[in-house]
Design a protein around this nucleic acid. Structure first.
Length: 565
RNA sequence: UGGGGAAUAGUUUAACGGUAGAACGACGGGUUCUGGUCCCGUUAGUCAAGGUUCGAAUCCUUGUUCCCCAGCCA
C-alpha cells in the first residue's frame, strides 16, 4: 500500500505530510500518532472516509499508529448502536486500529482532575448564568463580551460548587464550569468557553456514573495529550478552536503536547454530507434508510457496490488542502469503474426484455457456448452460456426505423449476439397498440461463436439471454439523489431531490450462471454496468443494484440529438 | 463593522524565485465480438492592480471574492 514510500520518489504530497516530515527530521517526534475521532451519533459517510484515509494513511506511511477514538462526551445524542456500526465501517474501509481503541469517556477521571487543576490555578470558575444570559454576556462577532458576575468567585467556592455539580445537587443547566480566558477576545471561542456542563442523562458507556460531562473543547485536545497523539488532524471549522486547544494544553499538567492541524472537508456534487441533512433524508423517508444505495454513507456505498479500495483511491486523488472544494461525483464513479473493470466478472442480463424467435433454429434444442469471464483478466477463465431458439434481447437494442448512427438491430439488419451467432431480423410483431412485442430472426449457423468465416462484419454486438434458461431478477438503477450539482443551502435543499433517483426493473432476465456466483461478487452485466447482489435477495428472487453504469457514448450521441447525422 | 481560513483550466490538484504539469470531465480520432476497456490527440488556468527582481503562481503593498465562528453540539 505504501510502495511509493519505499521507492524514494515520494514528494511533499500534501501539507500535512510535509509538516510531519519536518517534525520527524527536526526530531520533534520519533513516532507519528494520529487518531480518527468520530462521535457515535450517526453513521460514517464518504467525508469521514477522507479523514480516515488521511489519518490511517499517514500513520502507516510513517510507520506510526492511528487510534480509533470515540468522542463520546454528549450522552444526550450518542448511542451504543453507532459505536458498533462505526467500527464495522472503519474495518470495511480497510483500516485497523489494532489495540488502540479509545473513548473520550475512558478519560473522564483524568479530565475531572484536570478541571479541578484549572480551578486551583484560577483559570476556571463555576458560572450560574442561564444559557440566555450567557449569550447576552458573550457579545457579538463585532462587539466584545463582558465578564460574568460570577467570574471572580473565590477558588474554594468554585471547587465546592464543582464538586456539588458532580454530586448531582443541581438541575441540568443550572451551572457550568467555564475556562477563564478573555471575554474581549476577537475569537469567540476564547470568551470563557464552557468546559463542563450538567447532563442528567445515561451515557452509553459510563451509564449514570457521571452527571457532568466535558465539552468537546475540554475533551478532544486532552484525549490527544493522554494518548500521545502527535498530529491531531481535523477539519477547517476547528481552526478557530486551536488557540483554545493550545491554551488548555498549556494550562494543564499534560504528559504530552499534541498539535492540531486543519484541512478542508470533502464536499461532493449531487448529494449532501452534513449529518443533519442526512438524518432528515432518512427520517422523512426520502430514502429507504442509512444504507440506501443512494446515500453517501459508507453503508450506502457498500450496498451500492462501491468497493472499499475504490473509495480509498478516490480519497487519495482528491488530495488534502485547506481550500474549499466540491468534488464532482464523476471522479468517484471513475474510481469505481477503473477497479471494477479489472476485477468484475462479466455476465449477460437483459434489463428490459424483448423476445426474439430464431425461426431457423431447431425447435426444442439448445447448446452451450463459450464466454470469457473477464477480458481484462485471463485467469478469470471461461464459462458456458446456454443458447436456444427463443431468446431475449434489450428492448433498446432494436429500432424499427433506426437513425443513421444506430448500429444495433432493425428490420433486415444483421448483428452479432455476443459469443453466439449473427442474426438477421426478418419480421416485427406488434400488439394492437402498435408496440413491438416480438421479433422474428434467422441465424447463420456458420457464425457460431461470433465470427463469420467469410470475414463478414457487423456493426453491432448485443447481449442476450436464452428464454428457457433465464432466471428472473429485479434490477435497481440509481441516479443522483439531487438534480443540481450543489443542492441549495438551508431548508430548501429537499426541493432539489431527484424524483428519478431510483428505478426498479422487475422481470429482468439473467444468465443462469449468475445464480452460482458468491453473494458478494461484483460483476459486470455486459454493456450495462457494474452490479452487485442486494441483501433483499432471497431464494425466490434475485435483486441486483447497479453500482455504476459503463461509460455510454451512444447515450451522449442521443442526448445531443445527433443520432441521425 | 471583530476573529480565523482560502483563491491555479469546467472540477480537484502540483509548483517552494527559473519552461505552469497531472487527474477527472468535455471534445475529436484509432483499435475492438461490450457504442466498455485500451491508445492517440484537442480544449482550457495563476482573483485584480501596483511594486521588488535579469526572472514572480511563488516575495511585498493595496484591493476584490468566497468559506467558517456568537451551542451548556462535535
Amino acid at each position: 500500500m505504501n510502495d511509493a514510500a519505499h521507492d524514494g520518489d515520494e514528494g511533499s504530497k500534501d501539507f500535512v505530510r510535509e509538516v510531519i516530515r519536518e517534525d520527524l527530521e527536526a526530531g520533534r517526534t520519533q513516532t507519528v500518532v494520529t487518531r480518527f475521532p468520530p462521535e457515535p451519533n450517526g453513521y460514517l459517510h464518504i467525508g469521514h472516509a477522507k479523514s480516515m484515509c488521511l489519518n490511517f494513511g499517514v500513520a502507516e506511511e510513517f510507520s506510526g499508529r492511528c487510534h480509533l477514538r470515540f468522542d463520546d462526551t454528549n450522552p444526550t445524542k450518542e448511542e451504543h448502536e453507532y459505536i458498533e456500526s462505526i467500527q464495522e465501517d472503519v474495518r470495511w474501509l480497510g483500516f485497523d486500529w489494532g489495540e488502540h481503541l479509545f473513548f473520550a469517556s475512558g478519560h473522564f477521571d483524568t479530565l475531572y482532575e484536570w478541571a479541578q487543576h484549572l480551578i486551583r490555578a484560577g483559570k476556571a470558575y463555576v458560572d450560574d448564568l442561564s444559557p440566555e444570559e450567557m449569550r447576552e454576556y458573550r457579545g457579538t462577532l463585532t462587539e466584545p463580551g463582558k465578564n460574568s458576575p460570577y467570574r471572580d468567585r473565590p477558588m474554594e467556592e468554585n471547587l465546592d460548587l464543582f464538586t456539588r455539580m458532580k454530586a448531582g445537587e443541581f438541575k441540568e443547566g443550572a451551572r457550568v464550569l467555564r475556562a477563564k480566558v478573555d471575554m474581549a477576545s476577537g475569537n469567540i471561542n476564547m470568551r470563557d468557553p464552557v468546559i463542563y456542563r450538567i447532563l442528567h442523562a445515561e451515557h452509553p458507556r459510563t451509564g449514570t456514573e457521571w452527571c457532568i460531562y466535558p465539552t468537546y473543547d475540554f475533551a478532544h485536545g486532552q484525549s490527544d495529550a493522554i494518548e500521545g497523539v502527535t498530529h491531531s488532524l481535523c477539519t477547517l471549522e476547528f481552526a478557530d478552536h486551536r488557540p483554545l486547544y493550545d491554551w488548555l494544553i498549556a494550562s494543564l499538567p499534560v504528559p504530552f503536547v499534541p498539535r492540531q492541524y486543519e484541512f478542508s472537508r470533502l464536499n461532493l456534487t449531487h448529494t449532501v454530507l452534513s449529518k443533519r441533512r442526512l438524518i432528515q433524508l432518512v427520517e422523512e423517508n426520502h430514502v429507504r434508510g442509512w444504507d440506501d444505495p443512494r446515500m453517501p454513507t459508507l453503508r450506502g456505498l457498500r450496498r451500492r457496490g462501491y468497493p472499499a479500495p475504490a473509495i480509498r483511491d478516490f480519497a487519495q486523488r482528491v488530495g488534502v488542502t485547506k481550500s474549499d472544494n466540491v468534488i464532482e461525483v464523476q471522479l468517484l464513479d471513475h474510481c469505481a469503474r477503473e477497479l471494477l473493470n479489472k476485477t468484475a466478472e462479466r455476465r449477460m442480463a437483459v434489463l428490459r426484455p424483448l423476445k426474439v424467435v430464431i425461426e431457423n433454429y431447431p425447435e426444442g434444442e439448445d447448446e452451450l457456448l463459450d464466454a470469457v469471464n473477464n477480458p481484462e483478466d485471463e485467469s478469470a477463465g471461461k464459462r458456458q452460456v446456454p443458447f436456444s431458439r427463443e431468446i431475449y434481447i434489450e428492448r433498446e437494442d432494436f429500432m424499427e426505423d433506426p437513425p443513421k448512427k444506430f448500429f444495433r438491430l432493425g428490420p433486415g439488419r444483421e448483428v452479432r449476439l455476443r459469443y453466439a451467432y449473427f442474426i438477421t431480423c426478418t419480421e416485427v410483431i406488434k400488439d394492437d397498440s402498435g408496440e413491438v412485442i416480438e421479433l422474428r430472426c434467422t441465424y447463420d449457423p456458420a457464425t457460431r461463436g461470433g465470427d463469420a468465416p467469410d470475414g463478414r462484419k457487423v456493426k453491432g454486438t448485443l447481449h442476450w439471454v436464452s428464454a428457457a434458461h433465464a432466471i428472473a431478477g429485479e434490477i435497481r438503477l440509481y441516479d443522483h439523489l439531487f438534480t443540481e450539482a450543489e443542492p441549495s443551502a438551508g431548508e430548501g435543499f429537499l426541493n432539489g431531490l431527484n424524483t428519478e433517483s431510483l428505478t426498479v426493473l422487475e422481470g429482468c432476465k439473467l444468465e443462469p450462471s449468475v445464480a452460482e456466483l458468491p453473494a458478494d461478487a461484483a460483476l459486470q452485466f455486459e454493456r450495462q454496468g457494474y452490479f452487485n447482489r442486494d441483501p433483499d435477495s432471497n431464494d425466490e428472487r434475485l435483486v441486483y443494484n447497479r453500482s455504476v453504469g459503463l461509460r455510454d457514448s451512444w447515450a451522449k450521441i442521443v442526448a445531443k440529438g445527433g443520432a441521425n447525422t
